[in-house]
Each structure stands twice: as C-alpha cells, then as structure tokens.
Design a binder for these strands. Structure first.
Lengths: 203, 203
DNA sequence: TAGCACATGTAACTCGTTACATGATTTG
DNA sequence: CAAATCATGTAACGAGTTACATGTGCTA
C-alpha cells in the first residue's frame, strides 16, 4: 500500500494541545473541566470551545501524551478523566521554553482607532469611555485575584518551580496590561476632548 | 426558485474588509500596496496576506464600498487602483466607533509562562531574556517612528480629525505596550533568578 | 416542571496561512 | 543573468466558532 517510509506524517500538538497539556500537568481533568479552564484562567490569553477540546484530546491520546479512564456517566456518553503521561509532561516542558511563533497581536480596537478620525467625535468619545471602563473593571478583577492568591498561597508565589508562581506571573502581566490600557484611554479621551497643554494661539 | 424574501443574505464586510476601507479612506491604493500596509503600520495590530486581500477587495467592490480603475500592467494581469466610495466611507466611520467584538487576546507567551514551572530553569531564563530583547527592540523602533512623526507632522497630531492623529494614537498604545512588556520581563527575570527582597530564613 | 450544570460528541462554516502559478521591470 | 520588487490571482489546509444533537441529575 505504501510506496514511501514517510507515509505516516509525524504530528505535533497544536497550541491548543499544549494548553491542554499545561492544564493536565497540574492535575487530571475531564474534557468539560478543561473547557471551563479555557474560559478562566487560561481564557484571559487563550480560548477554545468544547467542540475543539474533545477532538484535540483524542489526538493527544493517539500521540500517547495523555490517557483517560472512564469514571461514570451522567449523560448518554461516558465521562472520561484525562491525565498527562510522562511523555506528555516532557513535551510541555520543552514547548514552554521554545520561543513563541512571531505573534500577530490582533487588536480590533487599534484598527478602529486607526480610522477614528473619519467618525463622529461624540460616538468616538463614547467608545473610548466604554473601553476604559471595561479595562478598569478587568484591572479590579485581577486585583481581587491577586489578593486571594497572596492569601491562599504566598510563599509559593516566590518559587518558580511551583504552578502557583506561573499563574502569578501571567496575572502580573494582565495587571500591567490593563493598567496601561486605562492610562492610554485616559490620554486618548483628553486628546479627543481637546485638552492641549497651554495652546499658544487662542480661538 | 425562491421561497423567501430572505434568499439574498445581506453581507457586511469582515474585520479585514474594514481594515482595507480604513486604509483606502486615507488614499487610493492597489491590492499590493494594501498588502504592504498590512505588514506595517497596520501589521502591528492586524495582519493579512495578499491571498486574503484580493478576494476581500472583490467582495467590497460587490458591496459598492470600493471601486477600481485599471492603471497599467507590469505582469500578466491588470494593475488595479482601488478608491473608497462615499458609501464605503460611511461604513468605516460607523464601524470605527462601534464597540469591538469581545477580544480574546491570544498570547502564546502567556500560555508558555503558565507551564514554565515544569521546564528547565536555564532555558526558561533564556526564553524570557529573548522576549525582553525583542520587546526592547520594538520599543526603540516605535520611538524612532514617534520622532519622525513629530518632525513631519506635529500640529496635526493634536487634531483628532486628522489621520495623523489616529496613527499617533495607535503608536502611543504600542509604546506603552512594549514598555510594560519590558518591565514585566525584567520582573520575571529577577523572580526566576531568585532575588527575594530580604528572605527571613537563610538556607 | 423548567432551567441549569454536567458531560460528550459531530457538522458546517469562516478566517487565515502556505503553497501554487504567472510574468514584467529594475537592480546588483 | 540572477534576484528582488511589482502585481494579481487560486487551491489546499488548519484553526476556530456556531449550531446541531443527546441525555442525566439537581435546584428554584
């Protein structure tokens, strides 16, 4: 059947695959629980729906990076609890320190701002106010998470070999990101309102 | 043939379509020139390859938001210069101030950091150093652009009705973003090296 | 008893990338 | 004369979203 030794292509996990391995490296979960983790906390920087998760888990299992055990069944299908294999654990560890693919930071808001000069200034202001409020809300939310992390763990947040440290590092990035987003919105709002620092010629 | 008045679905431009309209709102361009703009400056927050641009232009033309005129031909096909129509201009202006779709900020680096605790600390450090340097290089690059913008235009950067203002606003976001990225990498590097602020119990 | 959380899967579709394809003009 | 730039298009594929599909157990 085969006319080549390359008939079977070697497949490496997709980015989603590594995201799932990273979650399973912490503890075993069902596909459903993995999907939930892809809303929060992973959802803050990577999302996926369950329709992507289940096929990906099947692929990871084919590659022997995860394994599952049936635990029980509330619905028409079995409930499967997945755990990471030693090979899977090695795969995440290697992937985690390889430089990421040159990231194209898709930011729809920037695209809109790029064309904002064509729009109604009143509506432009409203958009920026809304974005500012959303960023401020996220900032508060992250602040609450930080407080509870400091309380629950504490010492662990200083040790880079703990999963808590890794979580904390991503949280700090989120905090800085939203803090800057708010500051930028405030600057833009001032500029849109026409607050010039000491204009030489008065109207 | 038709059993419904809804046979013809109304189609609105995709995000890429609006990106193209935003570029054409500034001045007329060929598909090739639009593709180049989608590397820089738009490429800093939105990318697309020419294989996406040409079909999208055809769709925008079908929707009467752009129009083209053949100018000459170096290759086997005609060279087409596209300009925005009044309807296209109205479409961008409206889109620009509508809240963006709830953005899922995909950040592969954060995903890697989330699993960094499983990895070799030496390689982890190397990854973060590399990311820090890349962010610092971008920061310098944006700084140069800012200087040339201030020189070329200057007054215009204070007027929200000019395209230069819009460009400047996105640039400022980039500057803040990279500045924070560098600071965060520095923090992470210190944490990975094990610089604790006055540890109570010595080893 | 209606709705939600739990739990897993498939199908259709859009978006985006890489590769295929062609060919003139300019530059080293 | 080889390579890059200009210039436009199609095809195949992978990634991601929304909708379709099923069914249990708990709670308001």
């Amino acid at each position: 059947m085969s006319n080549s030794i390359y008939t079977y292509a070697i497949t490496v996990p997709s980015t989603l695959g590594y995201a799932l391995l990273g979650l399973l490296a912490r503890h075993a979960r069902t596909g459903y629980e993995l999907t939930q983790a892809l809303r929060a906390p992973i959802g803050y920087y990577w999302t996926a729906s369950h329709s992507q998760v289940y096929p990906e888990l099947a692929q990871l299992e084919e590659q022997k990076l995860v394994a599952h055990r049936v635990i029980d069944g509330p619905g028409p299908r079995d409930t499967k609890r997945y755990r990471i294999t030693p090979a899977g654990r090695r795969a995440v560890a290697v992937w985690a320190v390889r430089p990421p693919d040159a990231a194209h930071n898709r930011d729809q808001l920037m695209l809109k701002v790029y064309s904002m000069w064509t729009a109604d200034p009143v509506r432009a202001r409203a958009l920026v106010v809304g974005q500012r409020d959303a960023a401020a809300a996220m900032l508060r939310h992250y602040g609450e998470i930080e407080r509870s992390m400091r309380q629950d763990h504490g010492e662990l947040l200083d040790d880079p070999t703990t999963p808590q440290f890794s979580s904390y590092a991503t949280l700090r990035r989120g905090l800085g990101f939203e803090r800057h987003a708010v500051a930028w919105c405030d600057w833009l709002l001032a500029a849109l309102t026409g607050e010039k620092p000491a204009p030489p010629e008065p109207e």
